[in-house]
Design a binder for these strands. Structure first.
Length: 199
DNA sequence: ATAAAGATCATT
DNA sequence: ATGATCTTTATG
């Protein structure tokens, strides 16, 4: 069943980030269902985290959606090429988000291969945030989409992830964030081959 | 108005 | 290792 609003509005992004492991991200773009089990995430906290676009509650046109109540999509363009998908969490005016970094393909494999311009199934199909969005058909225009709707949503399919099977580490690509770059806010499922490469 | 940097990926 | 590629943001 679909995750409800109270899953997203909890105040602890770190916790939500961990809880998202094992949940299923689904999209139905142009009527085509694609989905994947989330195996890797990163937490971003607006109030205190230099690595977050909304650091110190910085409100811009881009970050505005992060200030909404949890349960909407924050999608932005990275390096001019990649559409990165985040789940907005916490309450209104508290700009926290979780970046989905990798999923394990479940449904719509053919469509995902096509979107990624690949011929046969390989781990790189959905490893890395840019790849996830491309495979699922998520674009910046989906920014602000409610995650309880029919376009993009998350499901709990009762997949159990043990606390001991969650590895945490420093986030990727946030060297500029100084000491905040060291926070262990990247989470992944131990021994899952669908995670993106770098430790 | 202009410039610089960026939560990345694929290729060499 | 390096290039692709273009939005967002900061600065003048």
């Amino acid at each position: 069943m679909k995750l409800k609003e109270d899953f997203y509005t909890r105040p602890d992004v770190e916790q939500v980030s961990k809880d998202l492991l094992g949940k299923v991200l689904c999209t139905r773009i142009n009527g085509i269902l694609t989905s994947g089990k989330i195996v890797e995430t990163e937490a971003y906290c607006g109030a205190t985290d230099r690595a977050c676009h909304a650091y110190q509650h910085r409100r811009t046109k881009r970050t505005e959606v992060m200030f909404q109540k949890g349960g909407v999509a924050y999608v932005y363009l990275c390096y001019g090429i990649h559409h990165l998908f985040n789940v907005v969490t916490n309450c209104k005016d508290l700009a926290d988000a979780v970046l989905i970094r990798a999923v394990e393909p479940l449904e719509g494999e053919e469509e995902m291969l096509q979107r990624r311009n690949m011929k046969k199934l390989a781990y790189r199909l959905t490893a890395g945030p840019g790849s996830v969005s491309q495979a699922l058909g998520i674009l910046t225009r989906h920014k602000g989409t409610r995650l309880d709707g029919e376009l993009i949503w998350l499901e709990d399919r009762n997949i159990q992830v043990q606390e001991k099977d969650i590895l945490s580490g420093a986030r990727i690509g946030v060297a500029y964030a100084e000491e905040d770059a060291l926070l262990p806010w990247r989470f992944r499922i131990k021994d899952n081959p669908w995670c993106s490469k770098p430790q």
